[in-house]
Write a protein that binds this DNA or RNA. Structure first.
Lengths: 145, 145
DNA sequence: CTGTCATTAGTGTATATACACTATTTAAAT
DNA sequence: ATTTAAATAGTGTATATACACTAATGACAG
C-alpha cells in the first residue's frame, strides 16, 4: 500500500523510547542550526562557556553534567575553528576558556535560531505538555547521582 | 555547605533536557544489565533479532529505526562474542541474522532484568505518568521523517 | 541474453560519550 | 622544607550514531 503511514509505534521499552526521542529532537535542532555551522551539542558548549567565562574544563563539565574527558575532545574542534580560546598563563594548572569575538558573534546568531526551535516545540506540543515533559525528564535525570 | 543537594535544575533547553534524561535512563538500564555483560543498546539489538530472525541488516535497521551502517558496527561485537550468526549462503546478497543458542540464553536472562527495570520506572514515576511520557516522546519522534 | 537499475552490504570519517589511567600542578600537613 | 593529598588536564580505548561513498548482487526490460 502506497499510503501506509510510517509505523512508528512506541516501543514497550521506556529506555528505547527516550533514546529515540532524544535522537529525534537532536536531529531537529541540528537541522535548524545547520546554517550557523553548528550542531546543538556544540551550541550548548558555546552557550555554557558564554555564561560562565572564563571557566576551567572541570567547572564546565560540572555545569554541563558531562564527563570532563568528553569535553576535552568536544572543545578541540571549537578551539581549532577559533570560537573559543584559553586565556590562562602557560604552565598553570587550570585552563581559562572564553569565547573569542567570532565565537560570541556566532553564539548570538545561534541563540536566535535556538529560540525559534524552542517556540516551535511549544507550539507543537502545547505549553502545558512541555512543562509536564520537563518535569518528568527531570525526575528521570534524578535517578542518576 | 556540606549538605547542599546537587543542583540539577532542568535546562531551559528542551533538547538538552531530553538528551540528559536519555543518558540518565540509559545509564540506569546499563547498570542493571551489567551482570549479563550487556549494555541496553546491545540488549535491544538482540531482542529485535530474536523477534525477527532470520533477518537482514537492512530490515533490522528499519525495525529499529537506526541507520543501517550503525548496525554493521554494533552487530560486529555481538557476532564476535558468538551471540548471533549469519545463516545466509556465501555469495548471496542478503545476510540472515539469527541468535545462536548462547545468544538466546543470554537474551532471555537479560529480558528478565529489563523487565525489572521497567517495573522500577513505573513504581518511581507512576503508571499514568509513564503513559503520558510515552505519548509525549512518541509525538517528538514523529517530528523526524 | 544483456544492460540498467534497485537492493544490500560495507568502509571512511566525524561527532558524542564515558571509564581507566597517567601526568602535572597546587594546597595542606607535619 | 618536604611529603602527601587534592585538583586539573589529558590520552587510550570502547561504544554509539549517521552521512557520503563504494562494491557487489539480484531483478527486470528490451
Amino acid at each position: 500500500m502506497e499510503f501506509t503511514t510510517r509505523n512508528k509505534k512506541p516501543s514497550v521499552c521506556n529506555c528505547l523510547n527516550l533514546r529515540r526521542a532524544s535522537q529525534a529532537i537532536t536531529h531537529v535542532y541540528d537541522e535548524l542550526l545547520k546554517p550557523c555551522g553548528l550542531r546543538v551539542n556544540q551550541f550548548s558548549l558555546l552557550a555554557h562557556i558564554k555564561s560562565l567565562e572564563p571557566v576551567s574544563v572541570s567547572d564546565l563539565a560540572l555545569a554541563m553534567r558531562l564527563d570532563r574527558t568528553t569535553l576535552v575532545r568536544n572543545l578541540r574542534s571549537l578551539e581549532e575553528q577559533g570560537f573559543i580560546e584559553d586565556i590562562a598563563a602557560t604552565g598553570t594548572r587550570s585552563r581559562q576558556l572564553k569565547l573569542t569575538e567570532r565565537g560570541l558573534k556566532l553564539t548570538l546568531e545561534a541563540e536566535a535560531v535556538w529560540s525559534e526551535a524552542q517556540n516551535s516545540l511549544v507550539n507543537y506540543l502545547g505549553k502545558e505538555e512541555v512543562a509536564a515533559l520537563t518535569e518528568l525528564l527531570s525526575k528521570i535525570e534524578a535517578l542518576v547521582p
